[in-house]
Computed example of a mutant assay.
Amino acid sequence: MSSETDDKHKFRTSTRLLHAGYDPHVFHGFVNPPVVRASTVLFPDAATMRRRDHTYLYGLRGTPTTEALEAALDDLEGSAGTILVPSGLAAISVPLLAFLGQGDHCLVIDSVYGPTRHFCDTMLRRMGVEIEYFDPAIGAGLRDLMRENTRVVFLEAPGSNTFEMIDIGEMADIAREGGAVSMMDNTWATPLFLRPLDFGVDLSIHALTKYPGGHSDLMLGSVSANAATYKRLRDAQMQIGVNAAPDDAYLTLRGLRTMEVRLRAHERAALDLAQWLEARADVARVLHPGLPSFPGHDLWRRQFKGASGLFSIVLNGGGQREAEAFLDALRIFGLGYSWGGFESLALHVDLSDRLFAKGPSEGPVIRLQIGLEDVEDLREDLARGFAAVQALV
């Protein structure tokens, strides 16, 4: 490792975000890495080709563009290696396929991202993997669910849509003691606010589509692994034959440069609105880990360095009719899936697939992504939604 690289690891996060994963002098001093679109790589001679003794072998195995993003994520995550895949769901699917097979047992937190559950309940069950969901509040009781054939413990924190918090280190330790690999979907926090590997998690999963991309115009996922799991993860990626497009890798690298500035703005606006919402009579609960009133707030403070712009509210009474009236009245908040872009979004959360983490019962759960618009405009927009619900009475 060069002294220049050593110096980069000493920099603070905002500086590292701007310089991680790329040395401009490798490509004639240009500030941004080039977009290298490639399939075929030519070898200088037959012996080199036979030995596969070449920096790049084939486009599927990576290019300078994808390699730059992998290196940047390794720097941010503290990981031994990172793979890139075409979506956040692929970033969930590939590691599960890498470490599970017929007859294995997989423990999955019940507050997991919906498509993760769908993948487990369809593809993995067809493969002969036994899936067992567990209550996010289980704590040390997770140890009682471990079996001789438990190979993976899949975590997400905070929980998808309902934001339950867990003791990440405790659950990672239980998995390791039982001979299982721990994986965690860390999309909400990004590596700026949480580095799962620092808590003993083996693999950190991200939908780079969200805050790293930041502009709602790309699909990408990553899995960052520790030294014990990286080779098997990379081998599985190549066995499946899936990698990221260089254009999307380039856009994500560009997004990383401003991610901390954006995340802090999302954080401030979301907390401002969460506190305002908490004081409203027409809101039964605000599900935001950064609020002292939230049941998992102490766990959040102990483990996380910040909060992103995604949280939920529970309307005070009603059901689908009230939820749709609220959403249809919004003029700034868009009605759409995904989050992490510059724009505010809202949706009615469906928790019907939950076994344990069923969520609040006072009324419909509305998930809000707080974007980068003016906070007062967003406040007025939400007030329009509440007025529409009141008009139904």
Rank of each mutant, 00 (worst) to 15 (best):
L192V: 00
G178I: 02
N186C: 14
E156D: 02
G200S: 07
M183Q: 15
P158F: 12
D198H: 06
L197S: 09
L192T: 00
W188I: 15
G179C: 08
D198N: 06
D167F: 10
A175I: 10
G169Q: 09
T190W: 05
P158Y: 14
A180G: 07
P196T: 05
M171W: 11
G159D: 08
S182T: 06
M171T: 01
P196A: 00
D173P: 01
G178P: 11
A189S: 13
E156F: 02
E156I: 07
T190E: 09
V201L: 04
P191Y: 00
D173A: 02
N186V: 08
L192G: 03
F199G: 00
D185S: 04
M171S: 13
I166K: 15
T162K: 04
I168F: 11
V181N: 03
P196Q: 07
G178S: 03
A172T: 07
T190K: 02
I166N: 15
M165L: 13
G200I: 04
S182Y: 12
A175E: 08
E164P: 14
F163G: 12
I174N: 05
V181E: 00
L155D: 06
R195M: 02
E164K: 14
L192R: 01
L197N: 05
M184P: 09
A180P: 11
I168P: 03
I174R: 03
E170Y: 08
M183G: 08
S160H: 15
E177P: 03
M183A: 08
E177T: 10
L194A: 09
G200A: 04
L192W: 03
E156T: 04
L192Y: 05
I168W: 12
F199C: 05
T190V: 08
T190H: 08
I174D: 04
R195K: 06
V181W: 07
G200D: 05
A175D: 09
L197A: 02
P158L: 05
L197I: 05
E164S: 13
R176Q: 11
M183S: 08
A172S: 02
M171A: 11
D202S: 11
L155E: 12
L194V: 03
A189G: 04
P158Q: 10
N161Y: 13
M165T: 06
M165P: 04
L203R: 15
F163L: 11
T162I: 15
M183Y: 12
T187Q: 09
E177W: 07
R195H: 02
E156Q: 12
M183K: 11
S182I: 02
T190C: 07
S160Q: 15
L192N: 00
G179S: 09
F193M: 06
T162M: 14
D202F: 00
D185W: 01
L192P: 01
L192A: 00
G159F: 10
E164C: 15
M165A: 06
P158K: 12
I168A: 04
W188Q: 13
